[in-house]
């Protein structure tokens, strides 16, 4: 029962126009996304391309991606023999594994206690945890370095891991998760005669699996790629994790053996990237959960 005239646009939209607009929208969207994707992929593609090129082709600086002469075997074997790249990767794995295990062993009971138990000092501890969230590792680095130097612990796996044994972030994240765990189940477990220790590890922890997985992704990505702290405490190349190893390798390589340099970069980037490609969902979920809190 309206007396208003139809809006002018009603007359203008024809089926052809609608389809044109739809297609135009798709072209613009994918155009923008693909341009961005090209920018993102550029270093990855160039890394792979250069790592299989012989030096003379690298120096001619052409755009060709595939080399005229396949030189991959030489580059990769040179990179592997010139520097202990696999050792760097192993160090990275030891570093990430050691840190993660201790982080979880420390954080899970603490998070449970903060979430579900009443004990003196709980609130103080939680405030300290919140404050700790704001302190990046670069801040206590100096005193920790002096302490480790005085104890003669520099250049050890331990020195590389110790600042990260406590993850206030893990405590914070898991506490949020445990808070929503039903009290009734804990009470039932107590009535069934379980000790608190068993409740933590056999009842509560399995329920927090998504949070633990998310945190693990976050922790591994962070420490595999961390340069700052290893750069400070490690001078022995045989202990270097991937980023530091890469730096050693780049410095040692006289300037422009780009084939070997990109081969090394490929080898050290590959483990995490390949894991990511296979467990993309978990990675992205992990970052979302830890990122948004």
């Amino acid at each position: 029962m309206s007396t208003q005239p139809l809006p002018p646009s009603a007359v203008q939209t024809s089926p052809g126009l609608a389809r044109t607009r739809h297609i135009l929208g798709l072209v613009v969207t994918h155009g923008l996304l693909l341009t961005g994707a090209a920018f993102i992929l550029l270093p990855f593609v160039w890394m792979l391309a250069t790592s299989i090129k012989p030096p003379d082709e690298v120096f001619t600086a052409t755009f060709s991606l595939w080399p005229k002469r396949f030189y991959g075997v030489e580059n990769y074997s040179y990179a592997l023999t010139a520097a202990p790249l696999l050792r760097f990767a192993l160090n990275g794995a030891i570093l990430c594994g050691g840190i993660l295990i201790i982080q979880l062993l420390v954080a899970i009971p603490c998070a449970y206690a903060l979430a579900k138990l009443r004990f003196p000092g709980r609130d103080v501890l939680f405030v300290l945890v919140l404050l700790g969230l704001a302190v990046p590792v670069q801040v206590p680095a100096l005193p920790l370095y002096i302490g480790l130097a005085n104890l003669g612990l520099l250049n050890t796996y331990f020195s590389m891991m110790v600042p990260f044994f406590l993850s206030v972030f893990a405590i914070f994240l898991l506490r949020q998760f445990f808070k929503s765990f039903p009290d009734d189940i804990i009470h039932a477990a107590r009535l069934d005669g379980m000790s608190e220790f068993e409740i933590v590890w056999r009842v509560v922890t399995p329920s927090a699996w998504p949070a633990i997985a998310a945190f693990s992704v976050f922790s591994i990505v962070a420490h595999w790629n961390d340069l700052y702290w290893p750069l400070i405490v490690i001078t022995d190349a045989s202990l270097a994790p991937p980023p530091l190893g890469m730096m050693f390798f780049a410095n040692a390589e006289t300037g422009s053996n780009y084939g070997a340099l990109t081969a090394a970069a490929t080898i050290l980037t590959a483990p995490l990237v390949i894991t990511f490609l296979f467990a993309r969902r978990q990675f992205i979920q992990g970052i979302t959960m830890t990122g948004v809190k």
Partner: peptide, 26 residues
């Protein structure tokens, strides 16, 4: 997947590659 790739890759290694990409002559 593509846009997330740099987040997981080792920045030091990729920085080295960027150096190659940005090299004035090569």
């Amino acid at each position: 997947m593509i846009y997330f790739l740099p987040v997981t890759s080792t920045l030091i290694a990729m920085a080295t590659v960027w150096q190659v990409l940005l090299h004035p002559r090569l």
